[in-house]
């Protein structure tokens, strides 16, 4: 019997994380999939604030696939009344809520190895990473693209000049209904991404 020296070093990850990692090992022959997503959170501090909801929809072949979609609402341990007016999610709201772990697992299962798209996506990714950290697994492995940075590139704007999703919607004439719901923002960001992608000829 051979002794495996590395056994103690390679951490024993839960099943969902193994599955998630396995997506990245597969051959990349299939069509590239993007996932636009947005998290509504209790605030902007990724250490103390928590995710309230995640909305995500897939883009393939320059088309938003409406059926390839997920939305979850999270049970809130941290509740900040002051942010309720922005996202409209109450602690005891009528949406069915799940625990953070469940939400993140579903999210990983949804995104698989897709390239993540978001507006100021680093924040959303960090929020997910913090949640993953609480589950004691690694960070998101996906590539990510930020629509704000895409816009900077397109217009040759300096790096420190940021644009809000609202501003870009106005510029590109995207209707802003459902703004500040996770899936509504994800959809709007998706449209914005398609426009920018075309203009940047990616």
């Amino acid at each position: 019997m051979k002794f495996n020296w590395f056994k103690k070093i390679v951490k024993d990850y839960p099943k969902f994380w193994e599955t998630y990692l396995s997506y990245f090992n597969e051959n990349q022959s299939k069509e590239k999939r993007y996932v636009v997503f947005d998290c509504e959170t209790t605030g902007l501090d990724y250490k103390s604030d928590r995710i309230l909801s995640i909305g995500a929809v897939a883009i393939q072949n320059n088309q938003i696939i409406v059926g390839d979609f997920m939305e979850v609402f999270l049970q809130q341990d941290v509740f900040k009344p002051e942010s309720v007016p922005i996202h409209g999610i109450l602690r005891e709201g009528k949406e069915e809520k799940i625990v953070e772990a469940e939400a993140v697992i579903r999210f990983l299962d949804f995104i698989k190895d897709a390239t993540l798209i978001g507006h100021h996506v680093d924040f959303d990714i960090e929020m997910i990473n913090q949640a993953l950290n609480r589950l004691d697994v690694g960070k998101l492995q996906n590539q990510a693209m930020d629509t704000d940075i895409m816009y900077q590139k397109l217009k040759y704007l300096p790096q420190e000049q940021h644009s809000s999703l609202d501003e870009l919607c106005d510029i590109y004439k995207i209707k802003k209904s459902d703004r500040h719901t996770a899936s509504g923002d994800a959809f709007i960001t998706g449209l914005l991404f398609l426009k920018l992608k075309r203009k940047l000829e990616i």
């Binding site: 320059n62 088309q63 938003i64 696939i65 409406v66 059926g67 979609f69 959809f187 998706g190 449209l191 398609l194 426009k195 075309r198 203009k199």
Partner: peptide, 14 residues
Amino acid sequence: IAKTCQVIYLEKNQ
């Protein structure tokens, strides 16, 4: 029906 649709963006003249 809507759940199965796809959304396409077309640039001018595409």
